[in-house]
């Protein structure tokens, strides 16, 4: 997620034209949202229906992605699993971003002492790199989908806070803020009319980029047995179940993983595209 902002894509070529990558990402995003909202439309079957007679089938005409150890159709499960991943990803991002906004705004707006304190606090949180903060959280509150979601949100919060603080400080020191003071605007008017809108607009990009990362992390926790548990059709949990049969049934791991990657790539491409469009009006 830090990657996204740090690597703000440079302008190359006309920005208004829709690129092939952007168009593909847009279509994929629509498909993903559709499978989250109306999975029956894309995969009419029951993701939990077992059929022991047709267990461990490799991808074939009847089962495009093959079947698992209980004969459940992997395609159906992957499609129905989208809602778990998207909801968990969105919720975790919302938690992380929410905390990030609170911390970042505190640091960026309320004077030097608070800025210093929040900054030190963030520095300390960065010493729990990656999933470590999430694992600590899970130790305390126990495994499960809800704690895993909150844990992922917590882990991403310091990164968001730092970006939001930097953005606030950049916006605050810009000439148009001073120009508003010269016109006779009050501090609150300037905050509401200039600083916040210009700080929060990039958050949309952050959120889009962040959902991909959150989905990967949440799936990782499920894979490690600390989040959603099989037979739930969550992608990470499906991969975790497929791990046992990796030597004989690669498709059990491959397709859920492929969808995680596709989702994350879609989020990245969309996020960057939005970023570029917002930057070059």
């Amino acid at each position: 997620m830090q990657a996204g902002l740090a690597a703000q894509s440079r302008q190359s070529g006309p920005s208004r034209r829709l690129g092939v990558a952007e168009a593909t990402a847009g279509v994929l995003a629509l498909l993903l949202v559709a499978s989250a909202v109306v999975p029956q439309l894309l995969a009419p079957g029951d993701p939990l229906a077992i059929d022991p007679l047709s267990a461990f089938q490799p991808p074939n005409f009847a089962h495009g992605f093959g079947t698992d150890e209980s004969g459940r159709d992997i395609y159906t499960r992957v499609v129905h699993g989208t809602q778990y991943s998207l909801v968990i990803g969105a919720a975790a991002t919302a938690i992380g971003l929410g905390l990030g906004i609170v911390l970042g705004t505190l640091a960026g707006m309320l004077g030097r002492v608070i800025d210093f304190t929040v900054n030190r606090f963030l520095e300390v949180l960065f010493a729990f790199p990656g999933l470590l903060l999430a694992l600590l959280f899970i130790v305390i509150f126990g495994p499960g989908v809800v704690t895993a979601t909150i844990a992922v949100g917590l882990s991403t919060a310091p990164g968001y806070a730092r970006i939001i603080r930097a953005q606030l400080i950049t916006v605050r020191s810009q000439a148009f803020v001073e120009a508003a003071t010269v016109l006779g605007r009050t501090r609150w008017q300037i905050l509401l009319r200039h600083i916040l809108p210009n700080t929060l607009a990039p958050l949309f990009v952050l959120a889009t980029l962040g959902i991909g990362q959150a989905i990967v992390w949440a799936a990782t926790l499920s894979y490690l047995g600390l989040g959603a548990e099989p037979p739930t059709a969550e992608w990470g949990a499906m991969l975790s179940a497929g791990r046992t049969y990796i030597t004989s049934a690669w498709w059990m791991s491959f397709f859920p993983g492929l969808f995680i990657v596709l989702t994350a790539v879609t989020a990245t491409v969309l996020g960057r595209s939005i970023d570029r469009r917002m930057r070059h009006v």
Binding site: Q174, A175, F176, H194, P197, V281
Partner: peptide
Amino acid sequence: GAIYQDALGSFDPR
């Protein structure tokens, strides 16, 4: 009133 060197920077970009 004030007039600035960097007129562009003195306007809210939105």
